[in-house]
Amino acid sequence: MIKRRLYQEERQSPLAQWSFRLVIFSVPVIVLAAVLYRFGLLEFRPAVTTLLVGLGLALAGGILGTVAFFIIWESGWRGIGKAMASVAIAFLLVAGPAAVLARGLMLPRLADITTDLEDPPRFHALALARPREANPVAYQPTSPPGAQRTAYPGIKPQDLNATPEEAFNALLGLIQKRRWRIIDATPPRGARRDGRIEAVATSPIMGFRSDVVIRIRSTPKGARVDARSTSRYGEHDLGGNAERIESLLADLSVERRKLR
């Protein structure tokens, strides 16, 4: 019995075992990075580093699992279940971030997107609430010039055939549906004062924060809406800010039918 047990243990694939261990260990590392950052117990850069370590472990485990699968297939060793599980779990963990990163690397290095490049909406309340170590709150022109227009030609102001007050209320409702944390909401007063909404949007998993300001300005035909979304940290938003503005303005265009 002892010899037979030792023989079976030797026939286990050590590569499959290590791949499974790496992938399983990567899960709490990724979860820990997200939880600690969301609760403010970890700064941005350490959180990103921890996340990358977790994803790296998952990727390494998936690669080892793939190699183990072919070795087991040829040798007949035990452990094919762990090898396949390692590959499957690694794919679930890495596929999403890898797709976002691959798409982002094809975009220019921008972290501040606005519909009005000449007179971007300004932060007021968030300028005071933003941490000192965050990116500058003042708008920085894109480098090279025209990079935003080339990458995101659809980021334009929204002209509404409605009063500024109606536009303000519609936007406020859309922001509340998105569960962004509203920091300040100043309603417009016709042509005398622009309306302004400042809010904080967070990414679904890690909770990375982006600051958003929306300006509602009176026009002869109704109201013009400008939006600006900027990442608090980092030099590259991987397209997140533009996607946020485009989504908000797309929903506003649907609401525009109600405002006519």
Rank of each mutant, 00 (worst) to 15 (best):
A98N: 06
A83F: 07
I205L: 15
E246S: 13
W180A: 12
D251S: 15
G154H: 10
Q17G: 13
A16N: 11
I71N: 06
A167C: 01
E198D: 07
I113M: 10
A47N: 00
K82S: 14
R130M: 13
Q158R: 14
I197Q: 00
W180G: 05
R5F: 13
L64Y: 05
D112H: 03
G173T: 01
A83T: 04
T115C: 09
I63H: 06
L6A: 10
L59P: 02
S75D: 12
L36P: 05
Q8V: 12
E235I: 06
W73I: 00
I63C: 08
L117S: 09
L64S: 05
V48G: 00
A201F: 04
A102M: 13
P136G: 11
I113L: 13
R215P: 06
P204S: 07
A170V: 07
G222S: 08
D119P: 01
A191C: 02
T202Q: 13
P145E: 08
R244C: 08
T50A: 14
A223K: 05
D226V: 08
R179C: 01
W180R: 04
I2P: 00
P97R: 11
F20W: 15
V100Y: 03
E246R: 12
A33L: 03
P220G: 04
V67E: 05
D251N: 14
K3G: 04
K3T: 09
I71T: 09
E166N: 12
R38S: 05
A58L: 02
I155R: 08
G81K: 13
D211G: 05
R38V: 02
S229G: 08
R130A: 15
A68R: 05
R5E: 11
A147K: 07
L238V: 08
E9Y: 09
Q148K: 04
Q176F: 02
I80M: 13
R228C: 09
R38N: 08
I183Y: 01
A201M: 11
Q158L: 15
D251M: 12
V254I: 14
I175F: 03
S210V: 02
A201C: 03
R189P: 00
R149I: 10
R192T: 09
V48C: 00
S229H: 06
A250G: 11
G240Q: 14
R5N: 10
L117K: 09
M1P: 04
K258S: 15
D251H: 14
I30N: 09
I72M: 04
P131N: 08
A98Y: 06
T202N: 10
L92V: 15
R5W: 13
G62D: 03
L55V: 07
A185Q: 04
V23I: 06
P28A: 07
Y139M: 07
V212A: 06
V100L: 12
S19Q: 00
G173E: 08
R193Y: 03
G62N: 01
G207E: 04
L110T: 01
A147R: 10
